[in-house]
Simulated scan of single mutants.
Amino acid sequence: MPSSAALGVAPTANAPARRPARRSLSTLPFLAPSVIVLLLWMIVPLAMTLHFSFIRYNLLNPALGGFAGWSNYEFLLTDPALWTALANTLLLVGWVLVITVGLGTLLAVLFDQDFPGRGIARLLVIAPFFVMPTVSALIWKNLMMHPINGVMAFVSRSLGFTPVDWFAEFPLTSVIIIVAWQWLPFALLILLTAIQSLDHEQREAARMDGAGPVSMFVFIILPHLGRAIGVVVMIETIFLLTVFAEILVTTSGGPGLATTNLAFLIYMRALLEFDVGGASAGGVIAIVLANIVAFFLVRAIARNLAT
């Protein structure tokens, strides 16, 4: 009897067409090397930091060693320099976030408008983000804020005012200005991209309903930028907790401890006082602080994305 295919009849439901069998391949052998390297890259430095934080290890006196217990942590937690460094760290992070998010939002709204030379203006305002921290710190220290030859001193003398020695009179403010100048282009890029994704029909509908520029900004643009602002805050906070080059080049943590943050305090303990054990204890405290901040930021952003 001829088959149904030979007669040109489609197979019935009782005789389904055969499908080629697929082999199930496990992806574990392919992922394992990358996962192992990543874990080693993370765990080995953390384990060594924890190890050194519980021993006496001073580079100037190698004979002084042994298990120290919690003495490194006790000494660090009772040292007023730690709390000054933590306060400076929080002030630095907080003010840089306020400046970059505030000015970044206003500049993003401005650069979203159509005006002559907008492309060149965007390029110039984004350029500081590609300058290395050490170079930008040197530029601000020697060209902008120098009390004699700096641009700010020249402007002050031209207006009849006495030039300000920024790094002596306002050291932490000077560092905040430098770091904010570096991170403002990053915030601008993220926020400008978010504004450009706003539906133009929604804007036109608001304009037709009589919404002015202020109402448009408060009730349409700002709510739309909520998630982008959360991303900017999270990424900047993680990096701003480790600001180091700007402080080393400009003030070296001084005068006194006026500009010493947690990262610079760890550097002082390890490479200036040669106390590897105390510096490792400070590193563990910095890791705990960074993870606490990241935990709350990630939860806040995840809640914002879910709404």
Rank of each mutant, 00 (worst) to 15 (best):
A81H: 02
P147H: 15
A127F: 13
G150T: 11
I139T: 05
A121N: 01
R118D: 03
A87H: 05
A137K: 01
F129A: 04
V96M: 03
A127R: 12
R157P: 03
P133E: 03
G104M: 02
L97M: 15
A87R: 01
S156L: 11
L124D: 08
S158T: 14
G117K: 03
A121D: 05
M152I: 10
A137W: 05
M144A: 10
R118P: 00
G94T: 07
M144C: 13
L97P: 09
W140D: 00
L138I: 09
I139C: 01
L107M: 06
L82A: 10
Q113K: 12
A87I: 07
R118F: 02
A153V: 10
A121W: 05
V131M: 08
D114M: 07
T89H: 02
V93N: 04
I99C: 13
V109Y: 13
G94A: 12
I148W: 14
P133M: 07
L86W: 05
V96W: 00
K141N: 15
L103M: 14
F129N: 12
N142W: 10
F130W: 12
A85D: 00
V131D: 06
L110D: 03
L91G: 04
L91A: 09
G117E: 12
P147N: 14
V135Q: 06
V125K: 04
S156E: 12
T162F: 08
I148A: 15
M145V: 06
W95D: 01
L86N: 00
M145F: 15
V135W: 02
F161R: 15
R122G: 00
P116D: 03
G104T: 03
G160F: 11
F130L: 14
V125I: 08
I139K: 05
N149D: 11
P163D: 06
I139A: 04
G102E: 10
